[in-house]
Each structure stands twice: as structure tokens, then as C-alpha cells.
Nucleic acid binder design. Sequence first.
DNA 1: TTCCAGTCTGTGAACGCTCCCAGACATTCC
DNA 2: GGAATGTCTGGGAGCGTTCACAGACTGGAA
Lengths: 333, 333
Amino acid sequence: MAKRPTIHDVAAAAGVSRGTVSRVLNDDRYVSPAAHAAVRRAIAETGYIVNRNARSLVTQRTGSVVMVLSEPHEKVFEDPNYSTTIRTAIRRLGERDVSLVIMLAGDDGDRDRVVHYVRGGHADGVLLMSTHAGDPLVDELESLRIPAVACGAVIGKENVIPYAAADDREGARQMTRHLVEQGRKKIATITGPMDTPGGIQRLEGFADVLGRKASRKLIEHGDWTQLSGESAMARLLERTPDLDAVFVASDLMAAGALSTLRAAGRRVPDDVAVGGFDDSSVAATTHPPLTTIRQPLADVAEETVRLLLALIDGGGPVDPVILPTRLIVRESA
Amino acid sequence: MAKRPTIHDVAAAAGVSRGTVSRVLNDDRYVSPAAHAAVRRAIAETGYIVNRNARSLVTQRTGSVVMVLSEPHEKVFEDPNYSTTIRTAIRRLGERDVSLVIMLAGDDGDRDRVVHYVRGGHADGVLLMSTHAGDPLVDELESLRIPAVACGAVIGKENVIPYAAADDREGARQMTRHLVEQGRKKIATITGPMDTPGGIQRLEGFADVLGRKASRKLIEHGDWTQLSGESAMARLLERTPDLDAVFVASDLMAAGALSTLRAAGRRVPDDVAVGGFDDSSVAATTHPPLTTIRQPLADVAEETVRLLLALIDGGGPVDPVILPTRLIVRESA
DNA sequence: TTCCAGTCTGTGAACGCTCCCAGACATTCC
DNA sequence: GGAATGTCTGGGAGCGTTCACAGACTGGAA
């Protein structure tokens, strides 16, 4: 296999110098139309592709961004949303010729690897996914002064790590209002973990609508898994047998709640209305199908990438972006 | 921010030359214990991290691998398996200090980008995901002579692209046998697309067990989506109202089949037994829960990565790996 | 005419690493 | 004792870029 052509070969083929080729490559000013055309032709003829390593060596820019997944590993299946976010990020970054490296940060070893990677200057920016409150990684990245944004707020760091997110709080209000409008009187909720923005904000939205009617007795916490939805529902039922609606902070937990209700002989939505959140793929497959809140996942991903690129391009600080949710009425409520 | 230390700084701190530091870094022979220790200490003191770009520039190795997702974009949610595979790949590669870049190859533009990336020498190997029969990308990669493996066979290229996969055919046999053993007499099947290994092999396994009883009339094709499962089931029911079992080639399509059956007033499993495939997260949430075939996804991913690393490390050709599946009995059959 | 600003081009010097060669020294064998 | 072999080290060259600078050439203003 012949050696790959270098910028020298292109320069020779075009009858100009390295400098001129480099200028064309980087859209620099001061290149005559003739030279520009000659270089373009030479690039096509030789099949030249710039060597990113050589370029990075001098520019100190890598042309890549690292996405860090902080979710612990067991929860592998719990978040189909990752798929959308990853795809959107790849697409948008790819348009700018930036490539996406994915790393895990589930345990300390993983985290060290990420820090090492970033300290080594291997990425121009960091895209944080599902980073938990108090994650030491955030402080480390902060001290490295590398552009970083999060997909969904990082609790306690809302003002230091810009983010894009769905309007969890308003989404929860939409669902709770819907339940109220259906004439439900005793509305309970199953929340997500209280160290995640979704866990906190969706509970706040619920409380916003219900006010003092949102008593402690009607609140149970889950961990986003289906199993936790089942058991939380069981606890609610035991404590408040006459509840007639429940707002569950994720579809997967709602699916769990549904099984518990069925096992307890409650009809949905006749006896108990169930509202989910996410509009994930399970929502349509449950029986009955879930009334839920749709998050604009693709838009959130787009905005996250946009923020990161803006940060990398050196604009000043950027502001968080919150995107609206929408109520999807199916049969469960 | 102070400039990052280079190999020169480490050499100076350790009182040796660049060459010696480089030898320590690359575990080369011929370094005295004393020098080795001094260099190690100097690395720790200075916080030195090797500059991959400079290294790649001379070694022509990048220390990264690109995973190519060929699935068209609309099917974003259809394959929760991606999550497992991506995570496993990141983990295993990370252990070897290889990073994972993800690219899409859904349309021609994407594909060009991938080829450009690989031709540019930006990756040491390629990991193909869900590549369809006749994908031109495969030929292009082949001609570039870059190490490439697939997660799941690439139809028509089984002998040129090594792969790891679950034993789809035997899995289908397990399920079909199970249905037969339950005393089912008229067993139909809903297959995946016939240009995917899962589509083909699962139908073959079905036919292996049923022999001539697997008549055309009892076979319908879907495209892995829930909706396609619904309509395929409707067609089967119309053509063969007295069928008493159906083997559906994916859980998601099985969920669709379940709704159709329910709508048609058939009881599952009393009137019609339903068997799925994948043991994906929907399998447990359907009503009734799906009897299905579990694929060892994590193992498949591990093996895929192992094959790729072996190929990159320059061993000769490697052999495909097929891993066993397992019947998971729930309530639908 | 002279001068200046603007446009365009070529070249040397990095960037930070690995590779290779030459040479110093120690050990073994004839 | 001398040659051959093995261990260890230092330093020059080169990987393929971009950047800064110097210089050439233009056109218009003074």
C-alpha cells in the first residue's frame, strides 16, 4: 500500500508551497483564487486527507469531544434515552467534523481514566450524561478548565456546568393537573431518586399543583427501575388503600406500579389512574398503555451539543436551556 | 495554567535522556532498574501524561477504535441492545487504553464520513454494528485493509468480516421445540427482516424443528418494530384463524402481536401461545410476560472486542464466535 | 514620483514523540 | 589477553502539520 500523501505532495502537485496548502485547508485569508483552485484540484487528485495528529500537535486542538456516562453499570437497560442523545450528538458534532469519544465513569477507576484522558489533552470538551449530585468528577473537570456541559442539570452545579434539559417541573405539573381535572381526589406519587434532577423537579411540580394536599403519606421514592416502581406502589397501597391516582416519575416505574395494581385487583384507570413520565418505548406496550409526559429528547441533545460547541469556540459563559414537555394521553389516566 | 510537562521535563527530572524515558513508557528492554525507578518517580512528580498525537505521528497507531452504527436513524429506540454492547466495548477497550469513537453510517453522507475518517488513519480498527447485507461500507473498509469485526454476522461477508454473535438458529429451535412440547399443533412465526442475520437464522431454526409443517402460510415478516408485529399477527390470524402458537423473532414485535391477539379476543397463552426472542426489557412488562430466548449480549460484545484487538495486534485471521442462547419461560407460552 | 496599506506566497522553526545508531561498559568464552 | 556478546544510554533525525515572519507584488493616495 502506497504511503498516504502529505501536505508536501499536495503542494508539489499544485505547484505551490506548504503554507499555501495549509491556508486553503484552514480557510485562511490571502489565498489567490488561482492558487485556491490549484490546491483544491491537487487535493482531489492525490486523495489527500489531513493528518489530525500532526495538526493537533501544533494547534493543541483535537477535534474530538468526550461523552461521559456516569450511570452505574447495572442500570444498563434502564435508560433508552441514551440512544437518542448519543445519536443526536454524533450527528451534530459530525457536521462540524468533530468526533465523539465515549467513556464510562461508573466507578473510581473509570473516573480516573476520564480525568487522565482530559488532562492529557485528548478532547476539546466534555459532555456529561446523568451526572449525579456530588460527583467528584465535576470538580476535577472544573479545575482542569475544560469546556464542559451536561445533558440534564448537575445538582449543586447548575451555575458552573451549563446544561440543556426538559422542563421536568412543568411536565410534572401538566400530569398532576391532568389527574386533578379527571376528578381524582387522592393523588399519590412515586418519585425518582432524590439526588437526580428528575427526581427532585418532578416531585416539586407535583407539589406545585397539589399544594398542601401533597402529604408525606402520598409520596414514595423509587430508583427509576421497574422493580422499585412495584414495591413503591405496594407501600402506597398499604398506607393509603383508597388512593385513586398516582403520578409515577418514569414510565418504567409506572410499568412496575401497574403490575402491583393489577395484582391488588385494582382496575386502571377505573379505580386508579396512573400517569407516567418520559414517553419511552415501554409506555405504549404496557397494559393499559400509559398516559405520560413526552420529553423533547432530541432537542435536549441538540441544545447540549450547541452549548458545548459554543463554549469550545470560546464565546463567554453560556446559559442553560430548558425545553417544554407535552402531555400524551393514552388509556391509563 | 502552566504548560503540560513533556518527555523532556521528565528526562530532566529523572536525570536521564528522552530515549530512556521513552523506553520506560513503552516497556522496552534494556532499561536499568535504577533508571526505571527514577523515571517512574519523575513521571509521578511532574504529572506527566504522554501526548498521544505526538506518539501517533510517529507510530502510525492512534489508540482508538471506531464503532460504526449502521442502523437507520428512525429506529432509534428499537434496539436497547446497543446500550449493552457500547458499554461493554468501552470497558474492555478502556482496559487496554484504547478509546472508542462512535460514528453513524445511516446514509451516504454518514458513510462517506466514516470512510474519510478511516482513510485518514484516525482509527486502528472498526467495529461494525448491525451492518446490513450489501452495505457498500463493508467493501470500502475491506479495500482499506483496516482491521474490522462485526457484532453479529454481516450477511454475505461471513468469511471476510469476523464476528461474534448469539446462536440465533439454535435459539429459534429452542423456542420452537418448547412450543411443540407444550402440545401446540399449528405454530406460526413472525420473522425479522430477511436481510438481517437474526431474520434469516431465526426462521431457519424454526423450520429446522417443524420441517414440512412450517408452511408458507404460517410465516409472516416484520421489521423488528412493534407496529410490524401487530400487523403481521393480524395477517396470520386472518389467513389461519385456528393457529395455536406463534414464535415471534423479537420481543418488541411479540409485544405488538400480543395487542393484536388481545384485540381479536384470543387469550394468551390459553388460546395462542406466544414466544419472543431477545429477552429485552419489554419482555417482562408485557401482559402476560413473554416467554423468550435470552441472548448473551454482554458476552457477544466481549468477544467482538476480543476479536478486534486480536486482529489489530496483528495475529493472523481470526474465527467467528457463536454463543449459546437460553430459553426463559414466563407466562406467554 | 514616492510611500503606504493591503494582498499573496514561501520558508524556517516549532509541536512532542519514537526510532535507530553509535558508543560505553560489563561479562563470557576461547 | 583479546574478541565476541549482551546490556544500557544518549542524541540526531524525522513524523506532518501550523504559525510567524519576511519578502514580493499590487494599486491608490499624497
